[in-house]
Nucleic acid binder design. Sequence first.
DNA 1: TTAATTCCGACTATTTTAGTCAAGTATTAT
DNA 2: ATAATACTTGACTAAAATAGTCGGAATTAA
Lengths: 156, 156
Amino acid sequence: MRLTTKGRYAVTAMLDLAMHGDGAPVSLSDISDRQGISLSYLEQLFSKLRQRSLVNSVRGPGGGYSLARIPDSISVAEIIEAVNESVDATNCAGVGDCQNGEMCLTHYLWEDLSNQIRLFLGDISLGKLIARRDITSICERQDTASGNRVTVQATT
Amino acid sequence: MRLTTKGRYAVTAMLDLAMHGDGAPVSLSDISDRQGISLSYLEQLFSKLRQRSLVNSVRGPGGGYSLARIPDSISVAEIIEAVNESVDATNCAGVGDCQNGEMCLTHYLWEDLSNQIRLFLGDISLGKLIARRDITSICERQDTASGNRVTVQATT
DNA sequence: TTAATTCCGACTATTTTAGTCAAGTATTAT
DNA sequence: ATAATACTTGACTAAAATAGTCGGAATTAA
């Protein structure tokens, strides 16, 4: 479980999807405009999100992505692990052969901690994140033709 | 809060310190031998750990590092943040000026999540990590002169 | 058909991670 | 005092991950 800005990008994009996907698919260029994430980078992320069946895609005009499940059933842990491909490189394996052929002590300790984090993040869903702050969110995007800037307003 | 192998190195080293520091300071070369982490890399990490007052150093022969506080009062969050210098680059700040001069919605959402993680990891101390698995740990190091390999044994 | 959109692969730049190396400083056993 | 030990510091390098770019496909609504 690696926790970097990459994961935040993915969570942010999925949150955007959850808040704007009223049945209709949302295009990546819309998300790119709203969240300020490069379109091509979003493509990379969503390629992985689709592989993990977290989103569905619709091609062609009017197409885009939509959540594969309801926001309450998609956890932050799933999203982060989808894009980070969890390179769980335990360095202790290659070092000294700990006795009994088992891995060394700290490996277990870290694995334990890692599981706790996974459990914790697995319990935070997109739905919870949205609901946590009772937000009157106005996250509308101006008509593209108008050339206006993104409008995002949040009232606590 | 960034969570990578770098943080695990630091936590591992601090755990080693907690388990071998019987009053006397522990040298980095000992930790390097036991945990298979490069000595110079450990020096970098401990330089930051010392700056954050998580460890004390004793110079000269027989010197080394020891925990600045008892294991129960040193949290995983502190250790990780000490070595990761928490580059909390929120990308939304530079994008579009969200209305009211406030930051955009997802920033708050992520900040919220980030705080929860910090809270969670802040509650896990070195002491708790060691106690979690009731371990009969034999983590002795052979005499240096003998040239023998590190002996690490853990019985569940 | 045309335009909008996802898909796909290769490519690049920047940053971080991980590690090395060398020269230095402080401490203390002898 | 002196030498050994061990920390301290800074510069350097290599590999990997992150972040982003580009060009071109395939698909499909209009």
